[in-house]
Design a protein around this nucleic acid. Structure first.
Length: 637
RNA sequence: GCCCCGAUAGCUCAGCGGUAGAGCACCCGCUUCGUAAGCGGUAGGUCGUCUGUUCAAAUCAGACUCGGGGCACCA
């Protein structure tokens, strides 16, 4: 046997995984939950009868935890079958944080049922039932599941490739079709699990199939990890933009405009700050801002292919003379029309047309989520028209711009996915090869790591997806860069090349923030509403201690405004304690407190959010400092 | 769109068949205060909407609307 550290062990006779672990050490034998044979996870009971690369899997490894979670799904299924024998079990895998199992049952599970099931699961763990693997002959297995009324399982067996063994796992009276591996017994699951919710899910993920009931749970190796996970969920809830947004008076959502946002003055200030920053960055990067029409004629959408494929997601309107128009769901057709409005020269390329494009998509009601997924939103969209030779250079420049912008917003951890040609696509092999190569060169030349997402590109071209990681470790896909060899041609956009002939330009679709609304939602959650100074809608509150400081407070606010700081006065009849509390809860970054002393000495007492110290500063000095601190980052550009 | 859960004052929530409650916020007084809630008072709700059951419905049932958790969707 070869062990992970490269050492070798010789055994005279075949032995089980458990025996192997015991031979290495008693501590390992106790911690072992599975083994790996030539890289493949196997049960501890597996008999090793040949030379192999082996490794003992414990709960400290991701594979071990995955096995534990998969086991939790089985234990839950066993509990459900004991409590509700008429239920069919269908499919139950491990997930990132736990597990789920999809059940087919006429009556819905209630929250009380979940409590019962969880209780029974704890009993099953207490029973410590041995878990045993059995290999069955295919037809027998199918007949067996039919006979016990598990028709979904019987159907599933038919899908398993012919060269794969049909394995069943037995624990107590419960038998499940499963590839494994599993823990040696139910007791090893431990008690660090919790059922979270019940939800609908379609059989095999297809909305045309029957809807099953999915029970979600979370499971961890230790109680401590479970507690930490639950705490993270609470933290996410505390940061929820749907709660913080209205609380900080940034926006509200209402029945009168489902899927659209009512931006309040403070929220809109934030929006405009983000927009102004982006506009400045794009201007410097050689983009030209445009504004396309909101409503476009049906014939255009027919030409782009939207009318046939995506009409359900578009808002359709009608003019007085019965022309049918659609509210634009995206900006690219408008940009192609601007490009193609006259014949272009190669000298004009690359042409980068940018737009804070207001788009509407008639999303299914179930897809809506706060300001993150809405029906009316604004893209920081741009389309770069260029030659094939310019693709790499433009892509590199885009990656640099994007990373610099993310950094300014406080996101340093960015993941990149490279999505290649999907099964259904248009364009020749040569063009695809060239397009993929160009994009790949660009990421490499920019010195960036990426993971491959084979077959996940757009039908018209490969794409890069940029995911940023927030303060809670969650990933958000925001930026994208897509190559398109198709739409300019469809809409008849051409340029005259050096050779005097007409050519179709390549189009790069690109966005950095994605949707302004969604990005602001991400910012709210990332910062838990405590925005960096340059983004804070209200940067400073000038608060009086007594009424007589009112005129001076107004003067301080005036000076702030003159310095470009967003400041408001609070000269209300409240104690300073009350004001400090209120403005702290409102996450105002700076408080400039003025009382008798400050009026007389023309100073301010500066208090920063999160601190409890005050700093007495001369007014002019304070403003100079804060002005620098509040500067919009323009970093490395 | 589909499944489950929810909706009581601006906010957070109690009440769960028998005449709508609390705290905070708003408004009005008093207080003029030195860094996370000073004191008092007024006002505020056809209990999401509609239909039904009942002598009686915020409370029970159904439908609808909106919201939440998922699934599907995300050009």
């Amino acid at each position: 046997m070869t062990l992970p550290d490269g050492s070798e062990r010789r055994f005279a006779a075949p032995l089980t995984g458990a025996e192997l672990a015991a031979a290495i050490g008693p501590g390992l034998a106790k911690a072992a939950v599975a083994i790996k044979l030539d890289g493949r996870p196997r049960d501890l009971a597996t008999v090793i009868d040949r030379d192999a690369a082996t490794a003992v899997v414990t709960l400290n490894q991701p594979e071990g935890l995955e096995i534990l979670r998969h086991d939790a799904a089985h234990v839950m299924a066993e509990a459900v079958k004991e409590l509700y024998p008429e239920t069919q079990v269908t499919f139950g895998p491990a997930t990132e944080t736990g597990f789920y199992y999809d059940f087919a049952r006429a009556t819905p599970f209630t929250p009380e049922d979940l409590e019962r099931i969880e209780g029974r699961m704890r009993e099953i763990v207490g029973r410590d039932e041995p878990i045993a693997r059995e290999e069955w002959e295919r037809d027998k297995a199918a007949a067996f599941f039919e006979s016990i009324g598990e028709t979904y399982k019987a159907e599933w067996i038919k899908e398993i490739p012919a060269d794969e063994a049909i394995s069943l796992y037995r624990q107590g009276d419960f038998v499940d079709l499963c590839a494994g591996p599993h823990l040696p017994s139910t007791g090893r699951l431990g008690q660090a699990f919790k059922l979270m919710s019940v939800a609908g899910a379609y059989w095999r993920g297809d909305a045309k199939n029957a809807q099953l009931q999915r029970i979600h749970g979370t499971a961890w190796a230790t109680q401590k990890e479970l507690d930490q996970y639950l705490f993270r969920l609470e933290e996410a809830e505390r940061r929820d933009h749907r709660k913080i947004g209205p609380q900080l008076d940034l926006f509200h959502l209402g029945e009168e405009a489902v899927g659209s946002i009512f931006w309040h003055p403070k929220g809109w200030t934030l929006f405009r700050t983000v927009e102004a920053y982006m506009r400045a960055r794009l201007d410097r990067a050689g983009y030209q801002e445009v504004k396309g029409p909101q409503l476009l004629d049906r014939s255009l959408w027919e030409a782009t292919g939207h009318w046939d494929n995506f009409r359900d997601n578009m808002f359709i309107a009608q003019s007085r003379d019965d022309r049918v128009l659609a509210v634009k769901p995206m900006n690219c057709p408008g940009h192609v029309l601007i490009f193609g409005n006259r014949l272009r020269s190669y000298r004009e390329l690359p042409m980068r047309l940018a737009e804070f494009g207001s788009c509407h998509r008639n999303e299914p009601s179930g897809a809506l989520h706060g300001i993150m997924r809405v029906r009316g939103f604004t893209q920081d969209d741009a389309h770069i028209f260029c030659t094939e030779q310019q693709i790499t250079e433009e892509s590199i420049a885009f990656c640099r711009l994007l990373l610099g912008i993310y950094k300014d917003f406080g996101f340093a951890d960015v993941g990149i996915k490279f999505a290649t040609r999907p099964e259904q696509s248009i364009g020749s092999d040569a063009i695809w090869a060239h397009a993929e190569q160009s994009l790949q060169n660009a990421v490499k030349a920019a010195g960036l790591d990426y993971t491959l997402a084979p077959g996940e590109g757009a039908f018209y071209g490969p794409k890069l997806e940029f995911h940023l990681r927030d303060a809670l470790g969650r990933d958000w896909q925001c930026g994208t860069l897509q190559l398109d060899f198709n739409m300019p041609e469809r809409l008849g956009a051409t340029y005259v090349g050096e050779d005097g002939g007409r050519h179709v330009p390549v189009m790069l679709h690109r966005a950095i923030l994605g949707s302004m609304e969604r990005f602001i939602g991400i910012l709210i959650e990332h910062y838990a509403g405590r925005f960096p100074l340059w983004l804070a809608p209200v940067q400073a509150v000038v608060a009086t201690i007594t009424e007589e400081a009112g005129p001076y407070a107004a003067e301080v606010a005036e000076v702030c405004a003159g310095a470009g700081l967003r400041a408001v006065v609070d000269s209300g009849n409240d104690t300073i304690n009350y004001k400090v509390r209120e403005h702290s809860l409102a996450r105002i970054p700076l408080m400039l407190v003025v009382g008798k002393r400050e009026v007389e000495s023309r100073t301010v007492a500066l208090r920063r959010l999160g601190g409890n110290a005050q700093q007495a500063l001369a007014l002019a000095e304070a403003i100079d400092t804060l002005k620098i601190e509040a500067a919009v980052p323009s970093a490395n550009s």
